[in-house]
């Protein structure tokens, strides 16, 4: 109880100071100015949205969506596209894990050239330089993969190998590979070093230490991150369809362009189902893991 009340006092104190500081006022003012600037710049119109034409237009459009097209033929096709989107996200995530695993070991400082594993090594300077170069290259590659958005990768790949889910899967894999590589790397650099020290002292090689000391520690977290990215990727797979990577996204583009609103609603429902299903599955698996 005493602990609790001191905690609250501390909170109250920090809040009081926060509110008074000029620093915060400046930040707040800056934020307001930014908002005003964006409000004007984006031609945002609250009145239109709440009362005017826009509201009416949006409602009209929503009304046009109903009823969804539930003909058997279209439902079957939708099912196929849904599976295609699912396949894209699934394989893309697997490819991402492969890419991340190839790069993450090279881009972990503690595996490449510093720290406990290298305390006793008096390796020749050029070996050290080689290792450092490898590390820097891998790090740069990861950053490149990560900062170029999915969509740009998809554009490039669709251009290279043609339309279809295959380039979509590649694009997902490449970008997500960069993201996972970075996340895995962070996990990897924060492993407990004591067990590793003990393994090294038994005469284990660096590769053996990786399998016995590092992987068992990082695996659960890495799997959790992968599942989490899969949830993101199922959404992205829909988006990539828009640039020609097949699946639901492509069909949505067609439906909207050709004013097939009833079909659009069916497709949207399919997205809702598949995304929710993947979310639930991934949440379930993550819970089983921990």
């Amino acid at each position: 109880m005493a602990e609790r009340s001191t905690q609250m006092v501390a909170q109250a104190r920090s809040r009081g100071r926060n509110r008074l500081s000029a620093h915060n006022l400046i930040i707040l003012a800056g934020l307001l100015i930014l908002m005003a600037w964006s409000y004007v710049g984006t031609e945002f119109s609250l009145r239109q949205l709440l009362g005017g034409e826009s509201a009416v237009q949006i409602l009209t459009y929503i009304r046009k969506l109903f009823p969804p097209d539930l003909s058997t033929e279209f439902l079957l096709k939708t099912g196929y596209w849904t599976l295609e989107t699912f396949a894209m996200s699934f394989l893309g995530t697997i490819l991402a894990v492969l890419i991340a695993c190839c790069l993450v070991f090279l881009s972990s400082r503690n595996l490449m050239f510093t720290g406990l594993l290298f305390e006793m090594e008096q390796s020749r300077p050029w070996i050290r330089a080689l290792r450092t170069t490898l590390y820097l290259t891998a790090k740069a590659a990861l950053n490149l993969l990560r900062t170029i958005p999915h969509l740009v990768w998809a554009l490039i790949l669709v251009f290279a190998v043609g339309l279809g889910p295959f380039p979509g899967m590649l694009a997902l894999g490449i970008h997500t590979g960069g993201v996972l590589g970075r996340l895995f790397g962070e996990v990897m650099e924060n492993v407990e070093t004591q067990p590793i020290e003990a393994l090294q002292a038994t005469g284990a090689s660096r590769l053996q230490i990786l399998f016995y000391g590092i992987l068992p520690q990082v695996l659960p977290e890495c799997v959790a991150y992968t599942l989490y990215r899969w949830e993101v990727n199922i959404r992205e797979a829909v988006i990539l369809g828009y640039v020609g990577a097949g699946g639901l996204g492509q069909q949505i583009q067609i439906a909207i362009s050709l004013f097939l609103e009833h079909r659009l609603l069916t497709l949207i429902l399919a997205i809702y189902l598949i995304v929710t299903a993947v979310d639930a599955l991934s949440a379930h698996l993550r819970r089983r893991l921990t």
């Binding site: 002292a201 005469g203 016995y212 068992p216 520690q217």
Partner: peptide
């Protein structure tokens, strides 16, 4: 050489998840 020297650590230094 390390193979020929065995150590028991103060903090056990085991891999917890294995």
């Amino acid at each position: 050489v390390r193979r020929r020297i065995g150590t028991i650590y103060q903090q056990h230094n085991l891999v917890p998840r294995l």
